[in-house]
């Protein structure tokens, strides 16, 4: 085996950029999984919808800003569909998400005009980010910088929103739905609103990702929920003990996504697994980070019972 540390370092900026883009996606997942306490599987579909809408809009001559705004709206529509299936039709949230995700496959194909993928040229359409703009460009054109600014803006906006009366009612719904209704909160409405916001953000991440890779692919969202959860959970395990406010929690989710990509990149660099194995690898990483809090608690319990040394 020929391990060259320089090749790992060369890959790190790319991992950072990708991690940040998936960090946006993970912030979307955080809204449903952590704030609303719903497991929303719609995002596997939305993670393609956003890119598809963005690319198709660009190719029909719209500006990058308008295209991305439409991608956001398309994601919100997907969230609305899941929300209505869940609240108005009484379908369990996880199943409602799966139904929307499945139907989005066909919808995405229609958006892409029946093609399974579509390339978009960096030079022709004035994209915001690209994997070619990681180095040797002015810093304000650097993809890492652009996405980092987007993440900070998003975190700021969400911090403001979840501090408003409306945002508080969404948080209350996730914390205790019975209490929320007793306090006059329409929990069906807040759930739908949360799902829409979440999927809108995921679609925005999808729009970034398709620009970054220079194409949109019908399968680009497959397993997205696992990556999103990985980022949320890694962020929690690594930064959870630091006392921070809501904005810090959101940032730690984005950082969790970067850590995830660096771990992935490192394992790839070790050469033990090929690119075909990366879905398996994602699942293993998530399983490990999901298990850490549980095992830590269990181990501490044992140590306590035996009267042994307590680990802080």
């Amino acid at each position: 085996m020929n391990l060259q540390i320089s090749s790992l370092f060369n890959a790190l900026p790319g991992a950072c950029a990708q991690g940040l883009i998936w960090g946006i996606m993970a912030i979307g997942v955080y809204i449903t999984y952590k704030i609303l306490d719903l497991a929303d599987l719609t995002v596997d579909g939305t993670m393609c919808t956003g890119g598809a809408v963005c690319v198709v809009m660009l190719m029909s001559g719209h500006s990058i800003w308008f295209s991305m705004f439409c991608a956001f709206l398309a994601g919100m529509l997907a969230g609305l569909a899941t929300g209505l299936l869940h609240t108005a039709m009484g379908i369990p949230a996880i199943l409602a998400g799966i139904l929307t995700q499945l139907s989005l496959y066909s919808v995405n194909l229609r958006i892409l005009g029946g093609k399974a993928n579509q390339a978009v040229s960096q030079d022709k359409y004035g994209l915001l980010v690209s994997l070619r703009w990681i180095r040797d460009v002015p810093f304000y054109r650097n993809t890492i910088f652009v996405v980092a600014v987007a993440v900070l803006l998003l975190v700021g906006l969400l911090y403001w929103f979840f501090g408003t009366e409306l945002g508080c009612s969404i948080r209350a719904t996730g914390s205790n739905a019975n209490m929320s209704r007793a306090q006059g909160i329409n929990t069906d409405f807040t759930k739908i609103l949360g799902l829409m916001l979440s999927n809108g953000i995921v679609a925005l991440a999808s729009a970034f990702l398709s620009q970054y890779s220079g194409f949109v692919d019908i399968n680009m969202g497959r397993g997205a929920i696992v990556v999103g959860l990985a980022a949320v959970i890694i962020g929690e395990v690594v930064f959870g003990r630091i006392h921070g406010n809501f904005a810090f929690r959101l940032l730690s989710v984005a950082l969790g996504a970067i850590i995830y990509y660096i771990v992935m990149q490192t394992v790839m660099w070790l050469g033990l697994l090929g690119t075909n194995d990366n879905k398996l690898l994602s699942a293993i990483i998530v399983a490990v980070f999901l298990a850490i809090p549980y095992l830590r608690e269990k181990y501490r319990g044992r140590a306590g019972k035996k009267g042994g040394v307590r680990h802080a």
Binding site: G163, T164, E165, C168, S169, S180, Q183, G184, I185
Partner: peptide, 15 residues
């Protein structure tokens, strides 16, 4: 704060 807004519209004002 949630309780004091019982029965009122929840807007984008500070929570």
């Amino acid at each position: 704060a949630l309780a004091s807004r019982r029965g009122a519209m929840r807007t984008l004002k500070r929570g």
